[in-house]
Write a protein that binds this DNA or RNA. Structure first.
Lengths: 207, 207, 207, 207
DNA sequence: GATGAATGAGTGTTCATTCAT
DNA sequence: AATGAATGAACACTCATTCAT
């Protein structure tokens, strides 16, 4: 490893430490209540050093947004095509969110409490990226309608609301109550519950 | 009408005007970006007068929260019992939110973007009120399970996520895209779509 | 009594009520902490009415100052000449302050805590009036020196500090501890103690 | 000197500079009229920096109060015991105040005009510290009464009023008239005058 | 006279950002 | 790179004063 590479790597690490600290602080206090001083203290570095790695508070926030949306976009761009059935595809979507929450609860917390709804933080640019998720799921559902595996009498958009709303509600509740999520088994149980209702409905099987 | 009553009424009106102005400004810019000066200007009154009617910015915000939650609580406490079937009850819930959005889009907007998820604004007290909605719907669903009108093999809590998540997603999307909602017909179509998926599922009827 | 006189009298009474209220409130909270609203409430009248009787807060304060200094000036101008001896004259001065404190403790309180020392309130104009007291006592003492009834080897000005300082300390202590003063007997005991020390000194009579 | 010590020392110096600036500004305009901006300008630093060193305006004021009372308390606790006679002890008290006024006229000015009498600024806590001075002098005088060096027929408390009142009046006058005090000779003349009157009285020696 | 709503200048405090070392 | 002192714009809140009724 060249000195240059070492240097670069050290930089990456420190940046990641600040990033994580920001996640924790913003999760705890919200974006507006989170002060740069809090983040520096949480990261164990000096006040001014944050500005060496992130040009401003909003740039630091942008990095969180970017981290989140890029993960979502990888899912949307490359994570669904390998599945055949709509059940698998939507299962992969649900899995993705639950998996993210297990691995990076702070980031998911922040994504839910700070950027997915807040007027102040949801810039037009971010809104566009947010809507891509809706559009992609809608598209997947519409294709399934074409193939006859999803009912055609309800607009794909509405079916999207039901499905993504369920995932979002579940995550939101866990986030707001600070419930941790542990293990694939639990994840699958949750995903299964949502998928079952979504596909088969809440009405008991008659007979 | 006595002078005292007139006075009182005038006070109510002015307070409502400030309330509405606050709604619009907070909807537009978010709570933290909304300056008291903006609200005063929007209400067409002087800076200091806001403080005649609301003791502080956070008290003004509390009033919005109160207005919203008290409407929700009326629904929860008195709005569902007169219905017999689970379909009617959940239909009433969906109707309520769509109706509120039609009548008071600013307040609903603020409720979604500012207090239902934001860590900074969601005080423990508000979280409790927020969770009452979840609990009530869960209770209604559990009763329906007991009566055999909702499938018993999925926890009521998960079914609640699906139903309320659908409503929330729908509203959130309309709110974030500033889509107006007009007329009972449109409301019913939306509610019907959600209820149909929720009860019957997305899977096409086989055969 | 003509209607005009009645009117005038009513005005006087109301003004006096506001004056007294101001005394009490300013005594309680200090001039800067005393709000016009507090004074109006204490006087049992409406907010704006204070401005019918006193043009501004500082005018109201001026009225208190005036009331106090005019009493002092009556003492200085007409209250001492009828006495012959220096003992009687200084006794009259001590008596005056103790008597005022008994009769109008609020006004004396305010005079001590708000205008005799406070930089912010002691305008040049008021300082001049304040110094007249010092000068008058100094003059009285100097005359006594000339007549051989006060020792000549210490500047009259310094003797003035001792005498007035003693009176001021006594009053200040009573004021700061909210001690009431009741009856001529108590007044005379206090005055006597101060005069005895002042004239005869603290040293025990040798032999 | 280690870097850390240098740093610490620099901090102390800057803090002292702000302290002194606050003294001057508060002396000039009074506590309430003194704006933080004035103090910053007087100290030659930026607005916000004052808050780096003192958390709030009232904390800054507290620092002045503390500085003054701690000096007084050193006198009371350790400054009088080494003297034998009551003349020496009270002389030390008078000397102390005159010495402080010569060395730190601004602080003494502020102590007289802002915290020794003002209702608004004299918190219960400060009142207690203020009364310790009275109590200590009273105690010293009482001991002298027991030893026969102060007349026993007048309450020690009243004799305290005469002595401290004299010192206070002298200082107050100098402060209100902005008279500087220079040199030990002048100090001694003033102290001597007060002590002479206090001990021997104003009455000329008969015979 | 009497009321209290209305006005807006003034100020303490916060905190993102910059900069000297 | 690293530190933390320094800067100053921004903003909530107060309250003396005015004014319409």
């Amino acid at each position: 490893m060249t000195p240059r590479e070492e240097n670069h790597e050290a930089r990456q690490e420190k940046q990641a430490a600040i990033f994580d600290a920001a996640c924790r602080v913003i999760r705890e206090k919200g974006f507006h209540q989170a002060r740069m001083a809090d983040i520096a203290r949480e990261a164990g570095i000096s006040y001014g050093l944050v500005y060496h790695y992130f040009g401003s508070k909003s740039e630091l926030f942008d990095a969180l947004v970017e981290e989140w949306f890029s993960a979502v976009e990888i899912l949307l761009d490359r994570g669904l095509d390998r599945f055949e059935t709509i059940e698998e595809k939507l299962g992969a979507v649900a899995d993705f969110f639950l998996d993210q929450y297990e691995k990076r609860p702070d980031l998911v917390h922040v994504s839910i409490t700070e950027f997915s709804r807040s007027t102040g933080n949801l810039t037009p640019d971010r809104l566009v990226r947010f809507k891509r998720l809706l559009s992609k799921v809608e598209e997947v559902i519409r294709q399934a309608q074409d193939q006859g595996s999803i009912r055609p009498d309800i607009k794909a958009r509405y079916q999207t609301y039901v499905f993504l709303g369920a995932v979002d509600s579940l995550l939101s509740t866990m986030v707001l109550e600070n419930q941790p999520l542990k293990g694939q088994a639990q994840r699958q149980r949750l995903a299964q519950a949502i998928l079952t209702i979504f596909f088969d409905g809440a009405r008991p099987k008659s007979g």
